[in-house]
Design a protein around this nucleic acid. Structure first.
Length: 827
RNA sequence: GGGGGAGUGGCGGAAUCAGGUAGACGCACGGGACUUAAAAUCCCGGGACGGUAACGUCGUGAGGGUUCGAUUCCCUCCUUCCCCA
């Protein structure tokens, strides 16, 4: 008998070394085997590996290990999202080289990841800050430029004064910077954009194909893209050739227009009032409005402000003139920056019109009651019958909608149109630690892309980090260059790319990280892509996942891949909570991953993380709970050691099994079935682990029941223990290896076939049947699982307690559910 | 304001997909065994109320509905978290 103790500190490094030396987690393309690409969102290498990371990897690794045992050819890589602000900030405050700082952090993180025992193919590791990687950011940029998917434009942009950079719309949260929270200001700048709106429709439509994505992520994306159908209508300006266009989702209310409002940023505002007595007040008003934040301007509860321009437009459908105003609640980013005012049928317009004495004209009536403009207390926004609408009077507005748009089109007043909330992706950043945008500005040739053969445009070393402005712009070696076209003097673009570009195609790069001709080898990508299972935090529901989807479609249209959607299945893990708050540095409630592993070992940490909560839910951290997982692993270890003699001379299964052993065999098969289904179909690691615990409890009872074990018992016990080891292999891989070896198994447990189960054995030998009377449980009895309904009913009626309760009553009805219950209704 | 989740013992959570024994598994707690003692380990207990007990009544945020039967399905409401404004 072995009496050794469970010592994770000894066995974990031992097996990690063996895995590395034997290279069993390296993946190779094999057309004869079914592939499975499992991926976790790669981390930003801050150097600290926190619980959120640990949870992410524990989930992914357990699933991957399971898949390997089930027989898939698995790709499971890891890399580092290595560009970004923290490295640059460290450079400013601590005078360290961002590249060096980042590489050190990566090594630190990798070290912790290795200690966790994760089964990555480490040969495929990449870091986005390396020229071999960002080369391909630049390459894709050039291809996008050729296809018109990248362009430069002057636009009002979101500016974070604290980070001294512009931000994409997706990076503005509640009017503040997503990183530092500072109030975002609007600034007019020349910037580079990616034309994500070209794919707006496809990005919405393809969401329907993503059946294995959480519904809420799809809803968030759908809302973010904000596709709305309606019409664009053109209004002639009185006394001018100019036409003002507006987008509306309610073209059926055009007869009810009584005014128009423009955004303060609308390019026509200046022209409208030039030289009139309205010029100065309107200019002042516009300036004041521009200084307000977006949240303030779009807050629906706030009173809206406007100012008359003194100019009028003509409503083409009626020929009437109405005033044009400038108002604070209209944003240039949405629609066309001009909004037609229909006070009777839009609540915001109604309030605005009330404040400025603008007329209200009812054009849709409630079918139940008549609506009078004079007595309305709020806008009528529902559907109804069109009135005051010329040829459309009497028709239902919803049904008449498309006819009405046709009517506008025939007369040249407008046309059907689709509007998106989604804006083009602003990718320029005035920062150093990112991918240089490969463009030069030549005095004679203008904007010139850097030729592909000159890539990558490397980040220069001769920079100083002062915290003010972009260090790249101050570098003498970088800024000045010669034009690739005319060899004349040229100036380099000093902006770098948004780091979300890095994470928009890294999953392709893993399929062949050393490939030198393109971002990836099309053939290898064809084998591995798409990612079959992607795992990461819900916080990336919009930003990263939308950009990655767009990028994939862009790469597809460059002919590099056939894949249109990068991630077939998505699992969004819940946050890690401690003491009722998100575990975070700012809350001061962080448990470092390393500390956990020092104390209990990686297997315990992984086990607890998976056991404490289902992956999608929040995980409530509890120090005592970890203790429980540690105890469980100790128990398993002891149990196997105590019974190790059973494996000295393996026995064959006897023809006849003693009763207790037979029950044990049933329990083992039932457990295999449950664990298999919980992992494969539901990602329910917590219930899978519970099931293993139950089996362990049963084995322990069986082995300590006293008395000599019969030959059949010995066989059943050995089988039960081997089953437990195999089932634990995805969750506690180090211990599983150790015990597998101890029981005479061959290396490695992680490539053993997953244990099969016999459905006939994967049921309890007897089931408990309950007898209900009028819905209340009154008696129970044991029966065989396949007992017939008649049999069960007869046995229920023979039950002394039931006979007693039935005395003097009339049996009205009985319902029998075989294997479950007999329900009697009496009067 | 709009959209989407979630509410079950002292705690994390099961059962909810497909209506059928609510509380699996674990933590914390209580009792016992082993020990000179402790730790570790092993065994037993446990939703609430009443009862020595058998057992009974109540019980899954609140209220209603459907059903022989509702934690599960439907309606209304409350609380809370997330996303968008």
């Amino acid at each position: 008998m072995t009496t050794s103790k469970y010592l994770p500190r000894e066995i974990e490094p031992k097996w990690q070394k063996r895995w590395e030396e034997s290279g069993i987690y390296r993946s190779v393309e094999d057309p004869d085997r079914e592939k499975f690409y499992c991926l976790e969102m790669f981390p930003y290498p801050s150097g600290d590996l926190h619980m959120g990371h640990m949870r992410n990897y524990a989930i992914g690794d357990a699933y991957t290990r399971f898949l390997r045992m089930v027989g898939y050819n698995v790709l499971y890589p890891m890399g580092y999202d290595a560009f970004g602000l923290p490295a640059e900030n460290a450079a400013i405050t601590r005078k360290v080289d961002p590249a060096q700082w980042t590489r050190q952090s990566i090594e630190k993180m990798k070290c912790v990841q290795k200690r966790m025992g994760l089964s990555y193919d480490w040969d495929r590791t990449l870091a986005t800050c390396e020229p071999e990687y960002y080369h391909w950011n630049q390459w894709v940029f050039l291809q996008f430029l050729k296809k018109g998917l990248a362009y430069r434009n002057a636009a009002p942009v979101n500016w974070c004064p604290s980070c001294s950079t512009v931000l994409a719309n997706e990076q503005v949260e509640n009017g503040g910077c997503w990183r530092c929270g500072s109030n975002v200001q609007q600034k007019d700048l020349e910037q580079w954009f990616f034309r994500i709106t070209a794919y707006a429709d496809e990005l919405v439509q393809d969401l329907d194909r993503l059946e294995d994505w959480p519904e809420r992520v799809k809803i968030m994306q759908r809302n973010w893209i904000g596709r709305s159908e309606g019409a664009e209508i053109h209004f002639p300006l009185v006394g001018s050739e100019t036409v003002i266009s507006t987008f509306t989702t309610r073209p059926d209310t055009v007869f009810g227009i009584t005014y128009m409002v423009l955004a303060a940023e609308h390019p026509l505002v200046g022209e409208l009032v030039r030289g009139t007595d309205r010029e100065e007040p309107v200019r002042q008003f516009s300036e004041r409005v521009k200084g307000k934040s977006t949240i303030e301007r779009t807050d629906e509860t706030r009173e809206k402000e406007g100012i008359d321009t003194g100019r009028c437009f003509i409503n083409p459908v009626t020929g009437e003139r109405f005033p044009i105003l400038v108002a604070d609640y209209v944003m240039m980013e949405y629609g066309t920056g001009a909004v037609m005012g229909v006070p009777a049928h839009d609540q915001r317009d109604f309030e605005f019109a009330g404040k400025y004495g603008l007329p209200v004209r009812v054009v849709i009536e409630d079918d139940a009651r008549s609506i009078k403009a004079e007595t309305m207390e709020q806008a009528y926004v529902d559907d109804g019958t069109m009135v005051n609408s010329g040829p459309f009077d009497g028709r239902n507005n919803r049904e008449a909608m498309s006819d009405f748009v046709g009517y506008l089109e025939e007369n040249g007043w407008g046309q059907a149109s689709i509007s998106y909330r989604l804006r083009d992706w602003l990718i320029s950043r005035q920062r150093y630690w990112g991918t240089p945008i490969p463009v030069v500005y030549c005095e004679t040739c203008g904007t010139v892309p850097v030729p592909e053969e000159d890539l990558p445009v490397l980040l220069p070393d001769d920079v100083t980090f002062t915290g003010e402005g972009n260090p790249l712009a101050a570098s003498s070696s970088f800024g000045q260059t010669t034009c690739p076209g005319c060899s004349g003097h040229a100036r380099r673009e000093t902006d770098t790319m948004d780091t979300f570009i890095d994470s928009s195609h890294y999953f392709f790069r893993y399929t062949d990280p050393a490939y030198e001709q393109a971002p990836f080898d099309p053939e290898k990508a064809a084998y591995w892509m798409p990612v079959d299972q992607y795992i990461g935090g819900i916080e990336h529901a919009i930003l990263h996942l939308l950009y990655a989807r767009f990028f994939t479609k862009g790469l597809r249209d460059l002919g590099l891949t056939d894949v249109g959607e990068p991630f077939s299945r998505l699992l969004t893990q819940g946050m890690v909570i401690k003491d009722g708050a998100k575990m975070s540095k700012s809350m001061g409630n962080v448990i470092p991953a390393e500390e956990m592993m020092d104390k209990y070992g990686a297997d315990t940490a992984r086990m607890f993380i998976l056991f404490a909560s289902p992956p999608e839910k929040e995980l409530d951290w509890n120090d005592h709970g970890v203790e429980g997982s540690f105890r469980f692993l100790n128990r398993v270890y002891r149990l196997v050691c105590k019974n190790s003699h059973l494996f000295d001379k393996p026995e064959d299964r006897p023809d006849e099994l003693p009763d207790g052993s037979l029950s044990l065999v049933h329990a083992a098969h039932k457990t295999i079935k449950k664990v298999t289904e919980d992992i494969r179909n539901r990602f329910q690691f917590n219930t899978a682990i519970s099931a293993i615990m139950e089996l362990v409890n049963e084995l322990q009872r069986f082995s300590s029941d006293g008395g000599e074990l019969q030959p059949g018992d010995r066989w059943a016990m050995a089988e039960g223990l081997r089953t437990v080891i195999l089932l634990l292999a995805p969750f506690a891989p180090h211990m599983a290896e150790e015990l597998w070896e101890l029981t005479g198994g061959s290396y490695s447990v992680s490539v053993q076939p997953w244990p099969p189960y016999d459905p006939a054995l994967a049921v309890s030998r007897t089931v408990q049947i309950v007898v209900q009377i009028n819905g209340k449980v009154r008696a129970r009895f044991e029966a065989l699982p396949d007992s017939s309904g008649e049999d069960l009913e007869r046995r229920a009626m023979e039950n002394p307690k039931i006979i007693e309760l039935l005395k003097g009553k009339e049996l009205v009805k009985s319902v029998v559910v075989p294997g479950k219950l007999v329900s009697l209704v009496i009067k």
